[in-house]
């Protein structure tokens, strides 16, 4: 267990918590010179550890010097106004930004202590360990069974058809979808309802047994009932996986996450225990956002 690295913000002068004067911290006049993250960016039991991550899209500096941990068996929520770089940061964690033309990522990102940014790292096994669920459900135009079997098939996780079926069934069960689809596994995945599709995508992601699951606004296209089901699912999944979830819903962040990170214009403003962030935000911007003054 790599428990050595539990650093806390307080020990780091650069990240010293500082409560700013309201005038200075207004979102419009937010001063880039005085940036820095408030709260504890480090986790006691990190699964992923990012240090000084910067992302550029061409000339645009989309993420500035972000350092953040994703702990084991925790749900980390990322919140912030639109365009602040949440998705961009999330996509760094399994190097999905590699597929974006003109996107450059620098900094250090460790998964279980190993740098995933190194040039010789193959993204294929990396993404098998860090799975991803997208904002819009994107089932493949194949049957439900084939959708879930996709990952195990390409990665060769099942030695036999029986084993494959077992993986599919257990993934669907874990995704709380089994009961709804068990009679129509051969039907196309695109024929399911939006919420079912999203759970199918989650089942698809957990079928390859990743360590970390990244979710980019997984409920934004869904109705409240489907959302509730997925939130419950996330809570269950936490037992086995680390989860990073981007959300625009403060309530959702509060309901499902243990830690919350607040992003603003490419900066990580504040990180902390979810309970604390929502009750007692330390940074003015966080407070403004949470209380709904902008964003």
């Amino acid at each position: 267990m790599e428990a050595q690295a539990s650093q806390f913000m307080a020990e780091n002068p650069e990240h010293a918590p500082a409560r700013r004067r309201p005038a200075e911290a207004d979102s419009a006049t937010y001063d880039r010179e005085h940036r820095g993250t408030v709260g504890e960016v480090r986790s006691e039991v990190p699964r992923m550890r990012c240090t000084a991550v910067n992302v550029h899209y061409g000339d645009k500096h989309a993420i500035r010097d972000v350092s953040l941990d994703v702990g084991k068996n925790e749900v980390l929520a990322m919140i912030g106004p639109s365009g602040c770089g949440k998705s961009t940061f999330l996509r760094c964690l399994n190097r999905m930004n590699d597929t974006v033309v003109g996107c450059r990522v620098s900094g250090e990102i460790l998964l279980d202590g190993k740098d995933i940014m190194a040039p010789d790292v193959d993204v294929v096994p990396l993404r098998a360990r860090v799975g991803m669920v997208f904002q819009k459900p994107n089932p493949f135009p194949k049957s439900i069974f084939e959708n879930v079997a996709f990952g195990p098939r390409i990665h060769g996780l099942a030695q036999s058809q029986a084993e494959l079926e077992e993986i599919v069934v257990s993934s669907l069960q874990k995704a709380n979808l089994w009961g709804e689809v068990k009679d129509r596994l051969a039907h196309p995945g695109t024929g399911l309802s939006g919420g079912q599709q999203q759970r199918l995508c989650i089942a698809r992601a957990i079928a390859i047994q990743p360590e970390v699951i990244l979710m980019d606004e997984p409920c934004s296209a869904l109705d409240p009932i489907s959302t509730a089901k997925i939130e419950q699912l996330i809570d269950e999944l936490r037992r086995n996986y680390s989860i990073c979830i981007v959300t625009h819903s403060m309530q959702q962040a509060a309901r499902v996450s243990q830690r919350t990170a607040y992003f603003h214009l490419g900066d990580l403003i504040e990180v902390g225990e979810t309970d604390r962030i929502f009750v007692k935000p330390q940074h003015q911007l966080t407070e403004d956002y949470i209380t709904g003054r902008f964003g």
Binding site: T99, R127, F134, K136, N138, F140, G151, I154, H155
Partner: peptide, 13 residues
């Protein structure tokens, strides 16, 4: 693109 992303996101080559 979302289908491509879906596949890449699962570690497909």
């Amino acid at each position: 693109q979302s289908l491509r992303d879906g596949a890449y996101g699962m570690g497909a080559t």
